[in-house]
């Protein structure tokens, strides 16, 4: 996605490079092109552009590595080529992935199918359908960590979780110190009315 450029070429590493090698190459390039060095310099724009390109390439390669690690633990389905569908979803080819999934007959739809269908719906932004599919997958195969993680994430969102919400928003209700004391005194009076005592000193 680096505007058509191969991220490995951008970072100048081979395709078989390890994570450490990629990180080292990245650090080297950042040193070379860091915009701070080009302040008040006509080359500043070029440096900025180059930096953006390097960052994007780095993210892409690291993402690919992480995904590959993940891939080896993937579950699969006996009814259709789920690795292919996963790959299509990963690369953003949602329509094609959906087509393959639709081709599976309703009697052959297993947990993996529902999970992938849910992923397709989620990518499309059809969240209600995605949720239904994820819950179906998780109920068909409750032991699969990947399915329950997906379902958990959606459950958090359904509960109103929004990432990046600054702390302090909407949280200063009913947490007033004065109110708390007031409540305690009232409670104490009530207790005293009935012959008991909540706060012995007053």
């Amino acid at each position: 996605m680096t505007n058509g450029k191969d991220p490995y070429v951008v970072l100048g590493v081979s395709k078989g490079a390890t994570e450490d090698e990629v990180k080292a190459a990245y650090k080297e390039l950042v040193k070379k092109y860091h915009p701070d060095q080009y302040q008040n310099n006509p080359l500043q724009d070029v440096a900025n552009e180059k930096m953006a390109e390097i960052n994007e390439a780095y993210d892409e390669i690291i993402n690919r590595m992480r995904n590959n690690e993940y891939q080896s633990t993937y579950s699969s389905s006996s009814y259709f080529d789920s690795a292919n569908v996963r790959n299509l979803i990963q690369t953003g080819n949602i329509t094609e992935a959906d087509n393959i999934l639709s081709g599976v007959s309703p009697t052959q739809r297993d947990a993996e199918w529902y999970f992938l269908k849910g992923s397709v719906c989620y990518k499309r932004g059809w969240f209600n359908e995605a949720y239904d599919n994820f819950s179906r997958a998780a109920s068909l195969n409750p032991n699969n960590a990947e399915y329950s993680a997906a379902l958990n994430q959606m459950n958090n969102q359904r509960g109103g979780q929004m990432n990046g919400m600054p702390s302090g928003y909407y949280q200063n209700r009913n947490q007033d110190a004065c109110n708390c004391c007031c409540d305690l005194i009232c409670l104490d009076s009530c207790c005293e009315c009935m012959g008991g005592d909540l706060i012995p000193c007053c």
Binding site: Y122, F127, M154, Q157, N163
Partner: peptide, 17 residues
């Protein structure tokens, strides 16, 4: 409506971040 709105806003917040 709550869950539908919340799911959309949750995904929206991810992009916003």
């Amino acid at each position: 409506c709550d869950v539908t709105i919340n799911m959309s806003l949750g995904a929206l917040a991810d992009c916003y971040v």
